[in-house]
């Protein structure tokens, strides 16, 4: 090694180690993202791209009622999915953490991940089979005489999207809540009861506040990917269950208007960022209080 080398051994090693992932991230994340940002300020001119700077795409995306509807619906569906998922995940996580023998907990977590053993696409198709007009659910309900006609509000609309996504993301919500519950010192619950609180008020005053970081994490983990989900609305959403990602795809591939698609993508990203930051801030507040 030359004495006058400007980099120390350690610095060289660091650069060697991070260079590959850095190039990878640059090529596959930063460049496409940069391209999207650029595209969103350009204009499609039939087959060519007019690279003159313009805000027209944003103007159109923000004023066109169809785009606003889609963004609003995406937010609403993602919010519903998040609410349903987290509300259903909490009791499961609570049960595994508090009522399953310690030696059985890993088995339970293992069972919870079973849905992941099949591909996402196949699971979505399975929901189609379950929720369809002549699907498992409708024939069963008709078979036992609970309904006379098949239910139609469960497939090819927003409800179907919510049901399917809530199922797909359940483990992502269960795990962080489970971890947060596991970390709660059980003597705190006894202390609360010793100080006069019942099981219910102990849950509200001790367990729930201490589980909040896990709940916030679950909300973020479910909300961020669902808002941009494309496959589920496409397969089970019908015309009224489509979300913003479907419109972005349409703009890019069908309508040959990449700049407008790019602008829509950027707007969707900003929405997610704002909401995610709000939750990160909430989480910080919870974490700081301990």
């Amino acid at each position: 090694m030359r004495k006058d080398s400007r980099l120390s051994d350690e610095e060289r090693r660091t650069i060697a180690l991070i260079s590959v992932p850095f190039v990878y991230a640059l090529l596959l994340l930063a460049l496409p993202l940069g391209a999207i940002v650029l595209f969103s300020f350009w204009t499609q001119d039939f087959l060519d791209i007019d690279t003159a700077f313009t805000l027209d795409n944003y103007r159109e995306a923000l004023s066109g009622p169809i785009y606003r509807t889609l963004i609003g619906r995406s937010l609403w569906i993602a919010g519903s999915v998040t609410a349903v998922t987290v509300i259903l995940a909490f009791p499961i996580a609570y049960f595994v953490s508090f009522h399953v023998q310690p030696s059985r907990k890993s088995l339970w977590l293992f069972l919870i991940t079973i849905p992941f053993w099949t591909s996402y696409l196949i699971r979505v198709f399975l929901w189609k089979v379950i929720l369809g007009y002549n699907g498992v659910l409708n024939t069963s309900l008709q078979g036992v005489g609970l309904i006379d006609e098949p239910l139609t509000f469960i497939l090819y609309n927003a409800n179907a999207v919510v049901i399917t996504l809530a199922h797909a993301f359940a483990p992502f919500a269960i795990l962080p809540i489970f971890v947060a519950l596991e970390k709660i010192d059980r003597s705190l619950l006894e202390a609360s009861q010793d100080l006069g609180e019942s099981k219910v008020t102990t849950f509200l005053r001790v367990t729930l506040p201490l589980a909040m970081p896990g709940v916030v994490a679950a909300v973020l983990i479910v909300f961020i990917p669902t808002i941009g989900d494309y496959v589920t609305p496409r397969l089970v959403g019908g015309p009224n269950g489509l979300m913003i990602a479907n419109m972005i795809q349409t703009q890019f591939l069908r309508l040959n208007n990449a700049p407008l698609g790019a602008a829509l993508a950027i707007i969707a990203m900003i929405c997610v960022t704002v909401i995610a930051l709000a939750f990160v801030w909430l989480n910080r507040k919870w974490l700081r209080s301990r």
């Binding site: 010192d185 705190l188 202390a191 006069g196 609180e197 001790v206």
Partner: peptide, 18 residues
Amino acid sequence: ANHRPTNMVFQSYAIFPH
């Protein structure tokens, strides 16, 4: 326990961290 006239100091103290 919540209805007994007893109170306890736990070995771990069980101070509520939040």
